[in-house]
C-alpha cells in the first residue's frame, strides 16, 4: 500500500516539473519581437502640426504671399508644409490682390514654391475670376501655372483651356491646349 503512495508522489513531482518546463518554453516562444517602425511612422512623429496658422512671404520688404490654412503639417527635414483648406492672398506689384482658395496644397519653404490642388478658385479685386484643377506658383520664375479645366472670366471676356500661365496675376495670360476665348457683349 505504502509503495503505491510513493509512486503517486513521484508522478506529481514529475508532472509539476514538466509543467514548469512547458511554461518556460511558451514564454520564450511567444516573446514579442520588437517591430521595426515603418519609415513614415518615424517621419510623422517628427512633423509639426499647426492649426489655423498663416505663412507670410515677403520680397524686398513687401508682402507677396499670405497663406492661411485650417491645418498645416510642416516637415522640418524637407521644409515642406502640407496644408488643408487654404486661403491665400497674392499681392501683385501693381497693388492688385489675388485671393485663392483650395482644399489642399503644399508650400516649399526652401524654394518658396506653392502648389494648390483639388480644385482651385481665384478672384482678383479687379473682377477677374479663375478656376483650375491645380495651380502652382514658381517663385524663381515668378509665374503662376494653372492646369486642368481652366476657366477665366473678366468683364466681357471669357476664356477656357487645358493650361494657363501668367506672370502678373492674370493681367496677361497664355492659355494652351484647346484654347478658347470669347470677347465682347454676350461673352458670358
Amino acid at each position: 500500500m505504502k509503495s503505491l503512495k510513493i509512486n503517486k508522489n513521484k508522478i506529481a513531482i514529475y508532472g509539476f516539473i514538466i509543467v514548469v518546463i512547458a511554461v518556460c518554453v511558451w514564454a520564450v516562444a511567444t516573446k514579442p519581437v520588437p517591430q521595426k517602425k515603418a519609415a513614415d511612422d518615424v517621419k510623422n512623429e517628427q512633423t509639426m502640426d499647426y492649426t489655423g496658422n498663416t505663412i507670410v512671404e515677403e520680397r524686398n520688404g513687401k508682402k507677396v504671399w499670405e497663406l492661411s490654412a485650417d491645418n498645416i503639417k510642416m516637415d522640418p527635414q524637407t521644409q515642406k508644409a502640407e496644408m488643408e483648406n487654404i486661403h491665400g492672398k497674392y499681392y501683385e506689384e501693381n497693388g492688385q490682390i489675388l485671393v485663392l482658395t483650395a482644399p489642399h496644397g503644399i508650400y516649399d519653404d526652401k524654394s518658396k514654391n506653392i502648389l494648390m490642388d483639388n480644385g482651385v478658385h481665384a478672384q482678383s479685386d479687379d473682377g477677374m475670376v479663375f478656376d483650375a484643377e491645380k495651380v502652382s506658383w514658381d517663385n524663381a520664375a515668378q509665374i503662376f501655372v494653372g492646369e486642368g479645366s481652366i476657366k477665366i472670366t473678366k468683364g466681357d471676356m471669357q476664356a477656357q483651356g487645358d493650361r494657363i500661365e501668367s506672370s502678373n496675376a492674370f493681367l496677361q495670360f497664355k492659355l494652351s491646349g484647346n484654347a478658347h476665348i470669347v470677347k465682347g457683349r454676350g461673352a458670358n
Binding site: 471676356m157 476664356a159 483651356g161 496677361q172 495670360f173 497664355k174 492659355l175 494652351s176 491646349g177 484647346n178 484654347a179 478658347h180 476665348i181 470669347v182 470677347k183
Partner: peptide, 9 residues
C-alpha cells in the same frame, strides 16, 4: 470668339 492651340490675352 477665337479657338486655337494657344491663346494669349
Amino acid at each position: 470668339e477665337l479657338n486655337a492651340n494657344t491663346v494669349e490675352y
